[in-house]
Design a protein around this nucleic acid. Structure first.
Length: 107
DNA sequence: ACGGTGACGCTCA
DNA sequence: TTGAGCGCCACCG
């Protein structure tokens, strides 16, 4: 896998902007994010954009999980992200899954 | 312009 | 319920 360069596209900027809106202690899913940007089926593209994540400390990409509640995959160790989420008050199951019903944030 | 890739989603078995 | 397959959109070479 090669490192992709970040291209400031409108789509990416929108994703980051919305993601920054997620309050601490809450999480969102790729689907909700996709719907928020206007394309409910672009969850894949969302992951592509977030993978680059040039706004690492600004955009809480670790708060984004799959629609199933699984953390999915992250750029910097999923285990580290799991711990970070727990610190924010979000409990993670032993299988890298979170309780969406409790922490899912709707835009 | 085209094809391949990717931190996904949904449906079917 | 769990697992596998197909489809989706955006970015890169």
């Amino acid at each position: 896998m090669k490192e992709k360069r970040y291209i400031p596209t409108e789509f990416a900027e929108k994703v980051y902007k919305i993601l920054k809106k997620v309050p601490k202690g809450k999480i969102t899913t790729y689907k909700q994010l996709a719907i928020a940007v206007g394309s409910p089926s672009c969850a894949r593209a969302i992951g592509n954009v977030l993978h680059i994540n040039p706004y690492a400390p600004i955009v809480p990409c670790h708060r984004v999980v799959k629609s199933d509640g699984k953390l999915g995959g992250f750029a910097s160790g999923c285990e580290n992200k799991k711990k970070l989420l727990e610190e924010e008050g979000i409990e993670i199951s032993n299988d890298f899954s979170v309780n969406l019903k409790k922490y899912e944030f709707r835009f």
